[in-house]
């Protein structure tokens, strides 16, 4: 179980994390989604005892990351977003090194390593040098490394980034297997649909704040409550823009490059949308087109992380 309470991390005047609160139950696969720089890696670094928070605190399986970092390290398997490998070291030796670093005796490691390599489909690469493995294989090997001390919590920072579609699917299958093993998994990505497929719960983080949290279905419902609408006008552009900006259900009004098209996010119901169009007509705005774009999960995620807070 992970509990994050009012976690804040400041770098000078910049707040990388702003009073983050989060509770993740045991056995949950929690997806942490946000743009680059939103605060995902900062949160993970604090949970992995690599970074001290400015204020607030976090617990991993009941252990305080600040007061009991050594205990926390026993509980977690951490995979950073960017990591390197040692050249001149074979896959088997790589796992032996980390196994020994967790104090696992040699005989036990000898039994454990073939099982882990099999779990991540790398049994055939046991004697290969790690720097010669493909990126996908390195990611899987790193995942095996995270599992060597059988941690209850896995903290995986963008484990699928930079992987080709096949490697992504392989990674997803391994994570599904880990989920069935009852691990609590905290996984981050900037790609929401990717997380939606494998997570029980999702948290959307933006500018260091959690802007949405809940089950995948909840988030999808919330996100799908929004529409992106394109309106084309012949003239009176400024007047039309201010008309739409005044509507309480409209946000993020933008003028497109052609100087005739306005784009905005609409949160109202279908009836309210009809009334909006009718009012525009009554006002005599020279609208030639009023079209709704079918937004996918990714588009709407992009919109909410532009600063629109969801409750």
């Amino acid at each position: 179980m992970i509990e994050i309470m009012n976690l804040t991390k400041e770098y000078g005047s910049f707040k990388a994390l702003d009073s983050l609160n989060l509770k993740i139950e045991k056995g949950t696969v929690f997806g942490f989604v946000g743009q680059n720089g939103a605060g995902k890696s900062t949160t993970f670094s604090i949970l992995a005892t690599l970074l001290a928070p400015s204020s607030g605190t976090a617990y991993v399986n009941g252990y305080n990351v600040q007061k009991e970092p050594r205990e926390v390290r026993k509980q977690i398997g951490y995979m950073p977003d960017f990591f390197g490998v040692y050249d001149q070291l074979k896959a088997d030796e790589y796992l032996h090194f980390y196994g020994a670093s967790y104090g696992i005796p040699y005989q036990e490691r000898e039994k454990l390593i073939p099982q882990l390599l099999e779990l991540v489909n790398l049994s055939h690469k046991r004697d290969s040098y790690v720097d010669l493995l493909s990126r996908g294989m390195k990611q899987r090997l790193c995942l095996a490394r995270c599992l060597i001390h059988d941690p209850e919590v896995l903290i995986l920072d963008e484990p699928a980034s930079g992987l080709d579609p096949r490697a992504r699917i392989e990674m997803r299958e391994i994570l599904k297997e880990l989920k069935t093993m009852g691990k609590t998994i905290l996984i981050s990505s900037h790609i929401l649909p990717e997380l939606a497929e494998m997570c029980d719960q999702i948290g959307v983080i933006d500018q260091g704040k959690l802007v949405a949290e809940g089950s995948v279905a909840d988030i999808q419902d919330k996100l799908r409550g929004e529409k992106i609408i394109f309106v084309k006008v012949q003239s009176s552009l400024r007047e039309t823009v201010s008309f739409f900006e005044d509507d309480p259900f409209i946000s993020n009004v933008q003028l497109m490059d052609d100087d005739h098209t306005i784009r905005f996010i609409y949160k109202g119901s279908a009836e309210e949308q009809t009334a909006l169009l009718k009012n525009a007509m009554v006002k005599g705005l020279p609208i030639t087109s009023f079209a709704e774009e079918e937004a996918d999960l990714e588009d709407i995620f992009m919109e909410i992380t532009k600063g629109v807070e969801m409750s």
């Binding site: 005892t49 950073p80 990591f83 390197g84 040692y86």
Partner: peptide, 13 residues
């Protein structure tokens, strides 16, 4: 620089 330090530091060594 090789980005291996963080992984070493999250072990119990």
């Amino acid at each position: 620089e090789r980005q291996t330090l963080n992984m070493m530091l999250t072990t119990t060594q």
